[in-house]
Write a protein that binds this DNA or RNA. Structure first.
Length: 204
DNA sequence: TTCTCGATTGTCT
DNA sequence: GACAATCGAGAAA
């Protein structure tokens, strides 16, 4: 069975639990063609208490404004000047929690993803890594603050259940500057799934 | 296969 | 003016 996640799903204040439950869900975009994939890797960013979060200590700027909105919208951020990272904003208004989607397993529209990535044949590099995944799905900063209950970008529950023992929690990547918070095990991946990122530097 | 390093630009101090 | 929630090419082994 297939059903689009509704607004109430995103309003939970337990961003860590939400990150786990997003594993096995399907991220779908309809941007110049329909593409989708099963989410296999997420990271939780717990707003004000999390040094790795852009909105740490409730730092509100033009860039982080979407994080303070009510859950259920996208937050797409340009990193290193060239990579678009896709996040899901969660929790009620004024609580800047977000979940970074780091990798998906391609399901529909693989041809379109290949074209967007300028690749000739599918490989594990197609959607592993937040920058690559966003590019494959056609996401860019143009889609920042998009309502995830509309028909442009949304997340579906297709009845896939991921058991507790197939979820590995580990430390987040690329946030060393966050000091002690960099050690928090708030990155979640599906055990044994070849589409997850992070094989580099042997961090798993 | 594994690791090092450069690219490139918006945002904040 | 410094730096960043990364990627991918190319070197080394």
């Amino acid at each position: 069975m297939t059903c689009k996640l509704d607004k109430s799903f995103y309003l939970d204040e337990d961003v860590v639990a939400l990150s786990r439950s997003l594993l096995g869900k399907y991220l779908v975009t309809k941007i110049d063609g329909l593409t989708s994939g099963m989410i296999v890797e997420t990271e939780a960013y717990k707003g004000a208490e999390d040094r790795a979060c852009h909105a740490y200590a409730n730092l509100r700027t033009a860039r982080t404004a979407p994080l303070f909105e009510e859950g259920g919208i996208s937050y797409i951020y340009l990193c290193y000047g060239l990579h678009h990272l896709f996040n899901v904003v969660t929790a009620p208004k004024e609580v800047p929690h977000a979940i970074l989607i780091r990798a998906i397993e391609p399901v529909e529209g693989v041809e379109i993803m290949l074209k967007r990535r300028k690749m000739l044949s599918p490989s594990y590099k197609l959607t592993s890594g937040p920058g690559s995944m966003s590019q494959a799905l056609g996401l860019s900063v143009l889609h920042n603050q998009t309502d995830l209950t509309k028909d442009l970008i949304w997340i579906e529950d297709r009845g896939v259940k991921i058991s507790e023992e197939s979820i590995i929690s580990t430390t987040r990547v690329g946030v060393e500057y966050a000091k002690e918070d960099a050690l928090l095990p708030w990155r979640f991946i599906i055990r044994g799934n070849p589409w997850v990122s992070g094989y580099r530097k042997g961090k798993i």
